[in-house]
């Protein structure tokens, strides 16, 4: 395994972490459209709060996928073909969620608006749930043949552990979204978001404990890397506790950052546990390793130069965008984009 290969494994991890941090809250806000908002004005405000950014947030996923294809094509090929149905459902969720914002803005009648709001909410729920399932299944181990083809059956994808993983990502995203709402939206809904979050924190903490126990039972994380696994689990739990306390004390920025750390911590845990593999096979001899999944040193070098020169520019204008649209939206005054 070369340094470049490790660098790209880390980079793909960072792209996924960025995706979950950013799109995590707009998934959460999307779910809140049908679970938290009480009237059309509130729904306008929620959708408006992620309006300028959700699309760019999703590009983190596209870039993660592209980086995987470019730097670790064997991983990309095995993962995407192996998780065919879950990924297909993710695509459907992202498709209907993606058009729902524009179609809702175009819709005139409440019935049609309602349909697209449900598309926003269901898509925003399904995508993180399925991602949680996929990543959990990936570290749990899948049936893999000797050409690195995943040949899973229903219960390899759907079992207690993967469902808990899916629920965990949904809950984290939802609370992250609630914290975003508290930061970005003004009106009664802001306080309602805090109220709901306060109820959910204990549930999330319990979920994290269950997840840790299942991680111990179903994966080799604790055997292979006990110290770092425990540290990362502690970071995740601690982030939830910090966010909980910050919410109780009405410190909005801190609670938002802490739920972000929560999601980033989870991605880090999964990637650290995977290392030096990228796909865990039930038969350890068939696990796909970073060194076997990677592109040639030449391609990795080229891609490294490109990422190093372009990513800073991308980060700069994305941060600028959040800065420009930093002010709160007031319920009742937020209209559609056009």
């Amino acid at each position: 395994m070369s340094t470049l290969q490790i660098l790209w494994f880390v980079l793909i991890g960072i792209l996924f972490a960025g995706f979950f941090f950013l799109e995590g809250f707009d998934f959460g806000v999307g779910m809140a459209v049908k679970t938290l908002a009480k009237d059309a004005h509130e729904r306008d405000a929620l959708i408006g709060s992620i309006g300028p950014n959700w699309d760019a947030n999703e590009v983190w996923l596209i870039t993660a996928g592209g980086a995987m294809f470019a730097a670790m094509p064997i991983w990309y090929a095995s993962l995407f073909s192996g998780f065919y149905i879950p990924l297909f459902l993710i695509l459907l969720s992202l498709i209907f969620r993606g058009v729902s914002f524009e179609f809702r803005a175009m819709a005139k009648f409440n019935k049609a608006k309602n349909v697209w709001e449900w598309a926003t909410a269901i898509g925003s729920f399904m995508a993180p749930f399925l991602f949680g399932m996929i990543f959990t299944a990936l570290v749990k181990g899948m049936p893999v043949d000797n050409s690195f083809n995943i040949r899973g059956h229903f219960f390899d994808f759907v079992n207690l552990f993967t469902i808990v993983g899916g629920v965990a990502v949904v809950l984290m995203s939802y609370i992250h979204g609630l914290n975003f709402i508290r930061l970005k939206v003004d009106g009664e809904i802001r306080y309602r978001a805090a109220k709901v979050a306060k109820v959910l924190y204990p549930v999330l903490l319990a979920g994290e404990v269950v997840f840790a126990i299942l991680l111990f039972i179903y994966t080799d994380f604790f055997q292979n890397k006990p110290v770092i696994t425990v540290i990362l689990l502690a970071v995740i739990v601690l982030a939830t506790v910090v966010s909980y306390i910050a919410t109780l004390k009405d410190k909005e920025i801190l609670s938002f950052i802490a739920t972000g750390v929560n999601l980033v911590g989870l991605v880090t845990l999964l990637f650290v546990g995977l290392f030096p593999r990228v796909i865990v096979a039930n038969n350890p001899a068939h696990s796909l390793l970073i060194k076997d999944a990677s592109s040639s040193p030449y391609t990795l070098t080229i891609m490294t130069w490109i990422v190093v020169s372009i990513l800073p520019i991308v980060l700069a204008y994305q941060i600028w965008s959040y800065y420009v649209f930093r002010k709160r939206l007031t319920v009742g005054q937020a209209g559609s984009a056009h």
Partner: peptide
């Protein structure tokens, strides 16, 4: 993948973000 993935990744990085 060694060849084809690169333009796709660059497309996301250069074009989609922009």
């Amino acid at each position: 993948g060694d060849i084809f993935g690169a333009p796709l990744a660059i497309e996301a990085l250069v074009a989609f973000f922009l």
